[in-house]
Design a binder for these strands. Structure first.
Length: 200
DNA sequence: ATGTCGATTTGCT
DNA sequence: GCAAATCGACATA
Protein backbone atom coordinates (compact mmCIF):
# COMPACT_ATOMS: atom_id res chain seq x y z
CA UNK A 1 0.00 0.00 0.00
CA UNK A 2 2.39 2.67 -1.21
CA UNK A 3 0.35 5.31 -2.91
CA UNK A 4 0.60 9.08 -2.86
CA UNK A 5 -2.36 10.84 -1.34
CA UNK A 6 -4.25 12.49 -4.23
CA UNK A 7 -4.76 16.21 -4.65
CA UNK A 8 -8.37 15.78 -3.50
CA UNK A 9 -7.08 14.91 -0.02
CA UNK A 10 -5.63 18.39 0.37
CA UNK A 11 -8.42 20.19 -1.46
CA UNK A 12 -10.79 20.51 1.45
CA UNK A 13 -12.30 23.62 3.02
CA UNK A 14 -11.47 22.61 6.60
CA UNK A 15 -7.75 22.80 7.29
CA UNK A 16 -8.30 21.55 10.84
CA UNK A 17 -9.77 18.25 9.70
CA UNK A 18 -6.88 17.79 7.25
CA UNK A 19 -4.38 18.42 10.05
CA UNK A 20 -6.03 15.60 12.03
CA UNK A 21 -6.20 13.24 9.05
CA UNK A 22 -2.50 13.67 8.39
CA UNK A 23 -1.67 12.02 11.71
CA UNK A 24 -0.55 8.43 11.09
CA UNK A 25 0.22 9.11 7.41
CA UNK A 26 3.72 8.56 6.05
CA UNK A 27 5.78 11.57 4.95
CA UNK A 28 8.39 10.52 2.38
CA UNK A 29 11.22 12.30 0.61
CA UNK A 30 13.61 11.32 -2.17
CA UNK A 31 16.20 14.07 -1.94
CA UNK A 32 19.84 13.97 -3.04
CA UNK A 33 19.23 10.40 -4.20
CA UNK A 34 18.33 9.33 -0.67
CA UNK A 35 14.99 7.85 0.36
CA UNK A 36 13.72 8.66 3.84
CA UNK A 37 10.30 8.51 5.48
CA UNK A 38 8.50 8.81 8.79
CA UNK A 39 5.02 8.58 10.29
CA UNK A 40 3.49 11.97 11.05
CA UNK A 41 2.78 12.23 14.78
CA UNK A 42 2.15 15.93 15.31
CA UNK A 43 0.61 18.71 13.21
CA UNK A 44 -0.72 22.24 13.52
CA UNK A 45 -3.36 23.97 11.39
CA UNK A 46 -2.98 27.55 10.16
CA UNK A 47 -6.23 28.98 8.89
CA UNK A 48 -5.07 31.64 6.46
CA UNK A 49 -6.38 35.18 6.29
CA UNK A 50 -8.53 34.99 9.42
CA UNK A 51 -5.83 33.45 11.63
CA UNK A 52 -3.54 35.95 13.34
CA UNK A 53 -0.92 33.22 13.82
CA UNK A 54 -0.69 32.57 10.07
CA UNK A 55 1.91 34.22 7.86
CA UNK A 56 -0.94 34.88 5.44
CA UNK A 57 -3.10 36.68 8.02
CA UNK A 58 -5.12 39.46 6.42
CA UNK A 59 -4.16 38.20 2.98
CA UNK A 60 -0.49 39.10 3.35
CA UNK A 61 1.18 38.21 0.04
CA UNK A 62 4.99 38.27 -0.17
CA UNK A 63 7.75 36.33 -1.89
CA UNK A 64 7.73 33.97 1.06
CA UNK A 65 3.98 33.55 1.60
CA UNK A 66 2.83 33.46 -2.02
CA UNK A 67 3.34 29.69 -2.01
CA UNK A 68 0.46 29.33 0.45
CA UNK A 69 -1.88 30.78 -2.16
CA UNK A 70 -0.88 28.07 -4.64
CA UNK A 71 -2.61 24.75 -5.35
CA UNK A 72 -3.49 22.39 -2.51
CA UNK A 73 -0.80 19.76 -2.01
CA UNK A 74 2.05 22.25 -2.40
CA UNK A 75 4.98 22.31 0.04
CA UNK A 76 5.45 25.60 1.92
CA UNK A 77 8.90 25.70 3.50
CA UNK A 78 10.28 28.78 5.22
CA UNK A 79 13.24 29.76 7.33
CA UNK A 80 12.59 30.34 11.02
CA UNK A 81 15.00 32.14 13.35
CA UNK A 82 17.36 32.31 10.42
CA UNK A 83 18.37 28.67 10.68
CA UNK A 84 15.45 26.24 10.85
CA UNK A 85 13.54 25.05 7.81
CA UNK A 86 9.89 24.42 8.69
CA UNK A 87 7.77 22.22 6.43
CA UNK A 88 4.09 22.89 5.76
CA UNK A 89 1.47 21.46 3.44
CA UNK A 90 -0.81 23.89 1.59
CA UNK A 91 -4.52 22.96 1.66
CA UNK A 92 -7.92 24.21 0.47
CA UNK A 93 -8.32 25.57 -3.06
CA UNK A 94 -5.88 27.76 -4.95
CA UNK A 95 -6.01 31.31 -3.62
CA UNK A 96 -6.95 30.29 -0.06
CA UNK A 97 -3.73 30.25 2.03
CA UNK A 98 -4.46 27.46 4.48
CA UNK A 99 -1.55 25.27 5.62
CA UNK A 100 -0.65 22.44 7.98
CA UNK A 101 2.69 22.49 9.78
CA UNK A 102 4.27 19.07 10.32
CA UNK A 103 5.76 19.27 13.81
CA UNK A 104 7.00 15.71 14.36
CA UNK A 105 7.48 12.36 12.62
CA UNK A 106 8.51 8.94 13.82
CA UNK A 107 11.41 7.74 11.63
CA UNK A 108 10.67 4.68 9.47
CA UNK A 109 12.90 4.26 6.46
CA UNK A 110 16.35 5.64 5.71
CA UNK A 111 17.16 6.06 9.36
CA UNK A 112 20.90 5.93 8.70
CA UNK A 113 20.54 8.87 6.33
CA UNK A 114 18.52 10.81 8.88
CA UNK A 115 21.11 10.20 11.60
CA UNK A 116 23.79 11.43 9.22
CA UNK A 117 21.84 14.58 8.26
CA UNK A 118 21.16 15.33 11.91
CA UNK A 119 24.71 14.47 12.97
CA UNK A 120 23.40 12.00 15.54
CA UNK A 121 24.59 8.56 16.64
CA UNK A 122 21.36 7.17 18.05
CA UNK A 123 17.67 7.34 17.28
CA UNK A 124 15.82 9.27 19.94
CA UNK A 125 13.16 11.90 20.39
CA UNK A 126 15.42 14.66 19.11
CA UNK A 127 16.02 13.01 15.72
CA UNK A 128 12.76 14.25 14.20
CA UNK A 129 10.59 15.30 17.14
CA UNK A 130 10.32 19.00 16.36
CA UNK A 131 9.35 21.04 13.29
CA UNK A 132 12.91 22.11 12.54
CA UNK A 133 14.38 18.65 13.03
CA UNK A 134 11.71 16.96 10.87
CA UNK A 135 12.82 19.02 7.89
CA UNK A 136 16.50 18.47 8.58
CA UNK A 137 16.14 14.70 9.02
CA UNK A 138 14.14 14.36 5.80
CA UNK A 139 16.45 16.68 3.86
CA UNK A 140 13.77 19.32 3.27
CA UNK A 141 15.11 22.80 2.50
CA UNK A 142 13.55 26.20 1.76
CA UNK A 143 14.51 25.62 -1.84
CA UNK A 144 11.75 22.99 -1.92
CA UNK A 145 9.10 25.59 -1.13
CA UNK A 146 6.53 25.61 -3.93
CA UNK A 147 7.17 21.97 -4.86
CA UNK A 148 4.11 19.77 -5.42
CA UNK A 149 3.53 16.77 -3.18
CA UNK A 150 2.14 14.96 -6.22
CA UNK A 151 5.64 14.77 -7.68
CA UNK A 152 8.75 12.75 -7.01
CA UNK A 153 10.70 14.60 -4.31
CA UNK A 154 8.33 14.98 -1.37
CA UNK A 155 4.99 13.27 -0.84
CA UNK A 156 2.61 11.75 1.69
CA UNK A 157 1.15 8.24 1.53
CA UNK A 158 -1.37 6.21 3.48
CA UNK A 159 0.46 3.97 5.94
CA UNK A 160 -2.60 1.84 6.69
CA UNK A 161 -2.78 3.19 10.23
CA UNK A 162 -6.25 3.71 11.68
CA UNK A 163 -6.51 6.85 13.79
CA UNK A 164 -9.70 7.61 15.71
CA UNK A 165 -10.55 10.80 17.57
CA UNK A 166 -9.64 9.12 20.82
CA UNK A 167 -6.05 8.75 19.62
CA UNK A 168 -5.70 12.48 19.02
CA UNK A 169 -4.76 15.03 21.64
CA UNK A 170 -5.69 18.60 20.69
CA UNK A 171 -4.18 21.69 22.28
CA UNK A 172 -3.10 25.26 21.63
CA UNK A 173 -0.33 25.88 19.11
CA UNK A 174 3.25 26.39 20.14
CA UNK A 175 5.15 29.66 19.92
CA UNK A 176 2.29 31.83 18.71
CA UNK A 177 1.63 33.94 21.82
CA UNK A 178 1.73 37.05 19.67
CA UNK A 179 -1.52 36.00 17.96
CA UNK A 180 -3.82 37.21 20.75
CA UNK A 181 -7.10 35.29 20.93
CA UNK A 182 -6.10 33.05 18.04
CA UNK A 183 -3.17 31.73 20.11
CA UNK A 184 -5.68 29.82 22.22
CA UNK A 185 -7.34 27.93 19.38
CA UNK A 186 -6.91 24.13 19.75
CA UNK A 187 -5.21 23.74 16.37
CA UNK A 188 -2.36 21.50 17.49
CA UNK A 189 -2.81 17.73 17.17
CA UNK A 190 -0.69 14.93 18.60
CA UNK A 191 -1.01 11.17 18.12
CA UNK A 192 -1.59 9.70 21.54
CA UNK A 193 0.87 6.85 21.06
CA UNK A 194 3.55 9.48 20.90
CA UNK A 195 2.16 11.71 23.56
CA UNK A 196 5.02 11.36 26.02
CA UNK A 197 6.97 14.57 26.07
CA UNK A 198 9.28 15.87 28.70
CA UNK A 199 7.72 18.94 30.21
CA UNK A 200 9.68 22.09 29.62
C1' DA B 1 18.20 52.54 5.69
C1' DT B 2 17.83 50.65 10.14
C1' DG B 3 15.85 47.94 14.01
C1' DT B 4 13.02 44.23 15.89
C1' DC B 5 11.59 39.68 16.29
C1' DG B 6 10.03 35.07 14.91
C1' DA B 7 5.19 28.52 13.68
C1' DT B 8 13.14 26.67 17.12
C1' DT B 9 17.10 23.94 18.63
C1' DT B 10 21.14 23.34 21.17
C1' DG B 11 24.62 23.69 24.50
C1' DC B 12 26.31 25.61 28.59
C1' DT B 13 25.61 27.21 33.49
C1' DG C 1 16.88 27.20 33.04
C1' DC C 2 18.74 30.58 29.88
C1' DA C 3 20.77 32.55 25.88
C1' DA C 4 23.07 32.21 21.44
C1' DA C 5 22.72 31.25 16.65
C1' DT C 6 21.38 33.86 12.28
C1' DC C 7 18.44 35.85 8.28
C1' DG C 8 14.53 37.65 6.05
C1' DA C 9 10.04 39.89 6.56
C1' DC C 10 7.98 43.71 8.25
C1' DA C 11 7.42 48.26 10.62
C1' DT C 12 9.14 52.69 11.10
C1' DA C 13 11.78 56.81 9.04
Amino acid sequence: MRKRLPKSFYRHHDVVSIAKKLLGKRLCTFIDGQYTSGIITETEAYAGVTDKASHAYGGRLTERTKVMFDHPGTAYVYLCYGLHHLFNIVTNKKGVPHAVLVRAVQPEEGIEIMLQRRKKKKVDKTLSGGPGTVAQALGIHVKHSGMSLLEELIWVEDAGIKVSDKDIIAGPRVGVDYAGEDAKLPYRFILRTNAERTSK
